[in-house]
Computed example of a mutant assay.
Amino acid sequence: MPTPSPAHAALAAAFAEAFGHAPEGVWRAPGRVNLIGEHTDYNDGLVLPFALPLGVSVAASRRDDGLVEVRSLQADGTVTAPLSGAPGDVKGWAAYPVGMARVLRERGVGGATLLIDSDLPQGAGLSSSAALECATAIALCDLHGVEVPAAELARLAQRAENEHVGVPSGIMDQSASMLSTAGSALLLDCRTGLTSNVPFAPQDAGLTLMVIDTRASHELTGGEYAQRRAECEKAAEILGVPALRDVKDLPGALARLDDPVLRRRVQHIVTENHRVEATVGLLRAGAVAEIGGLLLASHMSLRDQYEVSWTEANVAVDEAVRAGARGGRMVGGGFGGSVIVLTHTERADRVRDAIDAAYAARSWTPPVFLTETAPSQGARRIA
């Protein structure tokens, strides 16, 4: 049994205080940053995320009454719902753990009482929702003695989000949270589910990957994310391919699309898959610094072709590059959240100061620079 950290010991104590008995364990799943490969996941493409040290922890115990009871240290109130309930009858943050429990009911998982804690910044686009789903999933499986392979748990977590929350997300976030290993990024083929570890240790090359919460709130249950997915599906139908991942001749494909919006969407997906492959090649060759240009090209494509970036992200990336960073880009679904910046470590303070100054000049809420960004381990039991 792992030795709990003080934070997780405190979570166990809070569980005992809230529910009158000790939890049977504490489980944790990380948030993620996607190094490159944005919006390619639901197009059957390639992605390259890695797990953060930050994440969601769940203290839990079994119940035998067919109910799931959830409480969060970051929210008021307790939500209790039957495992037999229908999608949509639980709203807000509680829909994620309740939905996960309902999906796992088909695998023999029963009721549970859960207390949730998170050190991921909310609305930062670092996949706190997938971390919550995955931490809940491994807790429930352990509690009820149900064995499900990690890759399959990621698929079930995606299904929970699609069906019970109403977000048509791809498989990337849950896979990164479940399958990542420390010191590596996770190359995931979203069609086949095949994964491989790609060494990613920028600090060994004298580099720092900065993760910056732009403080523009990120929310995927709005219509923009679903609209982008629908546009991709429409373009694939017109082009006669199963998914945009299958577009091999980009100029020929663009010529067959009359709608300029669909042309832009296709251009981003096809070129983004190429950028993932190029990034993997550079990382495996030890040329970490050289991926900066690919990060910047990804950002410009997301800004101009996919049209999901936002003003604060554009300013942060522009100012970072002007201050000497190797490159950077928005991460996540878009319309708010975080950016990543790759810089030589000796320039990190200068880059940070430039971004802070640009925010101050515009009277924006100051950005938050995450200090814990090294590629971390995936979901696991911690106490």
Rank of each mutant, 00 (worst) to 15 (best):
238 I>F: 02
186 L>W: 01
255 A>C: 02
181 T>G: 13
222 G>S: 12
197 N>F: 13
184 S>N: 14
186 L>T: 00
218 H>R: 13
229 R>L: 14
234 K>A: 15
233 E>T: 13
172 M>F: 08
194 L>M: 12
201 A>F: 12
218 H>C: 05
198 V>Y: 04
212 I>T: 08
255 A>V: 05
195 T>P: 10
180 S>R: 05
194 L>K: 11
247 V>F: 00
227 Q>N: 13
202 P>Q: 05
200 F>E: 00
207 L>P: 04
187 L>S: 08
227 Q>P: 04
182 A>H: 05
242 P>A: 10
234 K>V: 13
195 T>H: 09
237 E>P: 04
179 L>E: 09
258 D>V: 09
200 F>T: 03
203 Q>T: 12
250 L>I: 05
230 A>P: 00
201 A>C: 12
198 V>F: 08
217 S>G: 07
204 D>L: 14
200 F>G: 02
242 P>C: 01
226 A>N: 15
213 D>S: 06
185 A>D: 01
239 L>E: 10
198 V>K: 04
180 S>N: 06
236 A>D: 05
188 L>D: 00
255 A>F: 00
241 V>M: 06
225 Y>P: 11
229 R>S: 01
192 T>K: 13
185 A>W: 00
179 L>W: 03
222 G>M: 03
181 T>M: 12
199 P>D: 14
229 R>Y: 08
185 A>E: 00
215 R>C: 14
180 S>G: 09
173 D>Y: 00
254 L>N: 13
213 D>R: 04
252 G>N: 10
204 D>M: 11
221 T>N: 03
239 L>K: 10
232 C>L: 09
246 D>Q: 07
175 S>I: 01
236 A>Y: 01
255 A>K: 12
212 I>A: 06
207 L>M: 10
243 A>S: 15
222 G>A: 10
189 D>T: 09
241 V>G: 05
188 L>Q: 05
211 V>S: 01
256 R>K: 15
193 G>F: 06
229 R>V: 10
217 S>H: 15
251 P>T: 08
245 R>W: 04
173 D>T: 01
174 Q>I: 04
234 K>P: 04
184 S>W: 00
244 L>E: 02
204 D>V: 05
214 T>M: 08
248 K>L: 15
191 R>H: 11
258 D>L: 13
212 I>D: 09
197 N>S: 15
196 S>T: 14
222 G>Q: 14
214 T>G: 12
246 D>G: 04
201 A>V: 15
254 L>K: 10
254 L>M: 09
228 R>V: 09
248 K>I: 02
179 L>G: 03
210 M>T: 09
243 A>V: 06
242 P>N: 06
234 K>F: 13
